[in-house]
Simulated scan of single mutants.
Amino acid sequence: MIIILIGYMGSGKSTIGQKLSEILKFECIDLDDYIQKMEQLTISQIFERRGEIYFRKIEHTYLKELLGRNNIILSLGGGTPCYGSNMDAILNTEVAHSIYLKSSIPNLVNRLRSEKSQRPLISHLQTDEELTEFIGKHLFERSFYYSQSHQTLLTDGKTIEAITEEIVASLV
């Protein structure tokens, strides 16, 4: 089985992935980290040196490679399901179970407010109003893809433990 965690930045994909890895004894792979390791460049460097088209092409290649594995938890970048045929590849992988970790806009704003400097996509936003508008626009654009996941899990007001327990229970 491959468990694929989908959601907007700040939705908890990496944290939940690590916790699920401990419980299920599956390897946890963050797609962005995997790309950086394979390319020996940061995501920002890939964008700067080779451009977004190159990044999206290798992102798809590495996603397909990882979909050929078994017993992994795969955390995707927030935009990964929205480009090319990535979501189709996920949905057409028999052993894959995709889970959309759905957080409300206010919840995402609260989580991302203090992380803006580490997240290039939102580092330029000055106020909570700008951050709220940016996230809202992005979620609107991406919800079509996110909602195709096999499972949607609302995360607001839930602990990491509660979310992981809910996921594990849904897999049985």
Rank of each mutant, 00 (worst) to 15 (best):
M1K: 15
I4G: 04
L5K: 15
G7C: 09
M9N: 07
S11Q: 04
S14R: 07
T15N: 06
T15S: 14
Q18S: 15
K19Q: 10
L20W: 04
L24H: 03
L24E: 04
F26S: 02
C28N: 05
C28Y: 12
D33T: 04
Y34Q: 03
Q36P: 02
K37Y: 11
K37C: 06
Q40N: 15
L41Y: 05
I43C: 00
E48K: 09
R50L: 02
G51E: 02
E52D: 10
Y54E: 00
Y54M: 00
F55N: 00
K57V: 00
H60G: 04
T61Q: 10
Y62H: 12
K64L: 04
L67M: 11
L67T: 07
N70I: 10
L74K: 07
L74D: 02
S75M: 13
S75N: 05
L76F: 01
G77I: 02
P81Q: 08
C82E: 05
C82K: 04
G84R: 00
A89E: 11
A89K: 04
I90M: 10
T93K: 01
T93R: 05
V95K: 13
S98C: 03
Y100K: 06
K102C: 11
K102P: 02
S103W: 07
P106W: 02
V109H: 05
V109T: 07
N110A: 15
N110F: 08
R111L: 03
L112A: 07
L112P: 03
S114M: 15
S114H: 15
E115I: 05
K116E: 09
S117L: 09
S117W: 03
Q118K: 15
Q118P: 01
R119G: 05
L121C: 03
I122D: 09
H124Y: 12
H124K: 15
L125T: 11
Q126V: 11
T127V: 10
E129M: 11
L131W: 01
E133L: 08
K137Y: 08
F140K: 14
E141A: 12
R142A: 12
S143T: 13
Y145T: 02
H150K: 12
H150P: 08
H150C: 11
H150M: 09
Q151F: 14
T152C: 10
T155M: 06
T159L: 13
I160Y: 03
A162K: 14
I163F: 14
I167S: 08
I167Y: 07
S170H: 12
V172D: 12
